[in-house]
Design a binder for these strands. Structure first.
Lengths: 344, 344
DNA sequence: TTGAAAGCGCTAACAT
DNA sequence: ATGTTAGCGCTTTCAA
C-alpha cells in the first residue's frame, strides 16, 4: 500500500500566523474586497504558496452564501446531436473556470425536482438550463427562483426569464435567401426527428417557420419534413420528397445525425450535389467543413452560446441587469454544396 | 418584475422546533446514524415535508467533511467519440444520484492542477478520471491522494490505483476468433486515429495487441492500421489496404467516427459487405444495430462502465476494499455483417 | 432513545 | 490599512 499524503489541511489561521496577519486579512487578500498594502499582500501570497493553502469550499459557501458552482442541466435524450452538446458543455466549464466557478452536471431527467434540490440546498449559485421546450414546466419554476438562471432556448412565454439561443427563425430565412439568390425556385427543409417537433422544441419549429416565411416571400415552392436518423429512413424521406417535388433543386438540412445518410441517399437517387441539388446545412462548422462535399452552412455556435450563457449568469450574480432575450445572428458560410440553379 | 419567492431558508433548528425535538435528532433522522423511535421519526419527517426543509450543502460539508459530490474528469479532445462519452457521463450522474451524490464536471484541460484544486478545497469526495494515457501524469498524483478515485482505462503502471475498463485485449481476440471460426484467413484491424496511438492511449494499443496475438495463434495473415475520420481518409485507407492485401476477407473496425465512411469506401472498391468482406465493429450497440447493414459488434458498455465506476467509488468511500483492476469481459453480438469466408 | 453544546473553516460587520 | 469576533447551518461527541 502506498502511503497516503494525508495533508493535515492547511487553514486560513495557519496562513495568517505564518504571514503574521489576521485571518480576515488573508481572506481579503484572496477576495480583493478591501485594499491591502503591497507589502502585506506579498507576505500573505507567499505564505499561501508556501503552505499550499486552499480555502475549504464548504466553509466558504457557508460563510458567504456563495458556492461558486453553477448547475448545468443537460439533455441526454434521443434526437439531440451529442457532439454539439459536448462542445457547449466544454465551453460552459471553461468559461466558468475563467470566472472562478465550477460546474455541476444535472440530467434533464431529474426535472423540476433536481432544480429545486440544488437551489434549496445552496449547492449552486446559478443555473443553466438547456433544451428548453415551448411549454417547459421548468420555466415558471425558474421565474419564481431567487437564483439567477439562463435558459438555452426560448419557452413560449419567456417574459421574466433570461433566454439565449441562435436565432433559428433568421437561420431558416438566411438559408432560403441564399438559395433564392442562386435562382432556386423549389426548396425543402429536412428537419429534426418527429419526436423533437412533437415535444414542442422551439428551435426546430422556428427554423421551419423562418424557412417557410422566407420561401413564401421569394415566391418559391417549399416543403418541410421531419427526418429520422439512419440510412433506411433517409432513403425513404428522399424518395418521397423527390416523388412529390420532381423539380426540387435546393434543400436545407437541419439535422446533424441525418446529414451523412441524406447526402448518400441523394446520390443514390441520381441527384448529384451540387450539380443537381444545392444543399445548405445547419450544423457545426467542423462538420460542414469535413464532409465529403464541403457544405454551405449556418453554424451552430455551441461554444459561443456556452460562453455567453456563463457571461450572463456572472453579470446577474454581480447584480447587473441583463437583457431578457439574446438571439445570436446566424452566419452563413458558402462552401461547395450550393451553386446556381441548373438551367432546366 | 415577477416577485421572487425569496424563501427565508428553513434550517434544521426550524424543523427541530416544529417537531419538538433537538436539532441533533433531526440530523440523525436524516442520516440514519442512530436509531430513532418510530413516533419521533414520523413527527420529524412530517415537519421536514411541511416546512420544505433542505439541508444546506455547504454547512453539511463543513461539519461532516463530506461534500457528497464526485468529480468527473472528461476529455473533450479530438479522436474521441462524443456520444460514447455522453452515455458514460449520463450513467455516472444517474448512478451517483442513486447514492445521493452529485457530479462536478471537470475538463481534461485543467489537468493535474484541476485535480489538486478540487481535492484540496474539499469540493468533492472522490474522483472519476477518464481517458487515461499509458504514461498519464495524473496517475502518480492520484496514488498520493487521500481522496478515493477510479480511473477509466489503465496507465502503464496501475498498481495502487483503482482502474476499470472494457478488456480491450480480449476484445481484439474475440473479434479475430469470430472471423477465424467463419474461415477467414486474412484480416485487418482499422483502429483509432494516429494521434490516439501517438499519445499512448492504452485501449487502442490493447485492441491491436489482442487482435495481432489472436491472428497469429490462428495462423492468419493480419495487419493493423490507424484510421483518420472523414470520407477522404477512409477511401485512401481502404485503397491502400486492399492493394497490399488483395485476399482480405475480414476487418475489425475500432473507430466509431470512421465507421460510416469506411463502409462506404468498401462498397466503392467493389467489396460488398458481407458477401465479399466480413466486418466486425467495436462500438456501442445502438450504432451497430442502426447501421445500413447491421454490424456484428463488440459493445462499448459505456453505461455499465459509468455505473461500476460510481459503485467502486461508493465502496471506497464506505471504507470497503475494492479490486485494483476491473476488466469488463467483451460481449460479441452477431449481426448481418459477418458470414463464412466466400469460397475462393 | 434523546438532548446540549462544541466545533467545522471561513467571511464580513464592526472596531481601531 | 488591519484586527477582532460573531456567526453561517450542520454533525457529532459527550451526557443523560
Amino acid at each position: 500500500m502506498t502511503r497516503r499524503q494525508e495533508r493535515p489541511l492547511v487553514k486560513i489561521t495557519d496562513v495568517a500566523r505564518h504571514a503574521d496577519v489576521s485571518p480576515s486579512t488573508v481572506s481579503y487578500v484572496l477576495s480583493g474586497k478591501r485594499s491591502i498594502s503591497a507589502a502585506t499582500r506579498q507576505r500573505v501570497e507567499r505564505s499561501i504558496r508556501e503552505l499550499g493553502y486552499r480555502p475549504h469550499a464548504g466553509a466558504r459557501a457557508l460563510a458567504s452564501s456563495r458556492s461558486n458552482v453553477l448547475a448545468l442541466v443537460m439533455p441526454l435524450r434521443s434526437g439531440i446531436h451529442m457532439p454539439v452538446q459536448m462542445r457547449f458543455a466544454a465551453s460552459v466549464v471553461t468559461t466558468a473556470r475563467t470566472h472562478d466557478h465550477d460546474v455541476l452536471l444535472l440530467t434533464q431527467e431529474e426535472g423540476v425536482d433536481g432544480l429545486r434540490r440544488v437551489a434549496d440546498s445552496a449547492l449552486v449559485d446559478a443555473l443553466i438550463v438547456m433544451d428548453v421546450q415551448l411549454d417547459d414546466e421548468r420555466a415558471p419554476l425558474l421565474r419564481s427562483f431567487a437564483l439567477p438562471s439562463v435558459l438555452i432556448g426560448f419557452p413560449a412565454e419567456a417574459a421574466g426569464l433570461t433566454c439565449l439561443d441562435l436565432d433559428f427563425t433568421a437561420t431558416g430565412e438566411v438559408c432560403v435567401s441564399h438559395l433564392a439568390q442562386l435562382g432556386h425556385r423549389c426548396v425543402a427543409l429536412l428537419g429534426s426527428p418527429p419526436e423533437v417537433y412533437a415535444r414542442g422544441t422551439g428551435f426546430a419549429r422556428r427554423t421551419a417557420a423562418g424557412f417557410t416565411a422566407a420561401a413564401r416571400r421569394f415566391g418559391m415552392v417549399s416543403t418541410v419534413r421531419a427526418c429520422e436518423p439512419g440510412g433506411e429512413a433517409a432513403r425513404e424521406t428522399v424518395d418521397a420528397l423527390l416523388r412529390e417535388h420532381p423539380d426540387l433543386t435546393g434543400v436545407v438540412v437541419h439535422n446533424e445525425s441525418a446529414l451523412p445518410p441524406l447526402m448518400e441517399a441523394f446520390q443514390r437517387c441520381g441527384m448529384r450535389v451540387p450539380e443537381d441539388l444545392s444543399v445548405v446545412a445547419v450544423c457545426p462548422d467542423e462538420l460542414a467543413e469535413s464532409a465529403a462535399i464541403p457544405l454551405t452552412s449556418v453554424a451552430i455556435p455551441a461554444a459561443e452560446v456556452g460562453a455567453r450563457a456563463v457571461g450572463l449568469l456572472m453579470a446577474k450574480l454581480a447584480g447587473r441587469k441583463v437583457p431578457e432575450a439574446t438571439w445570436l445572428a446566424p452566419r452563413l458560410t458558402e462552401r461547395a454544396s450550393t451553386v446556381p440553379r441548373p438551367v432546366p
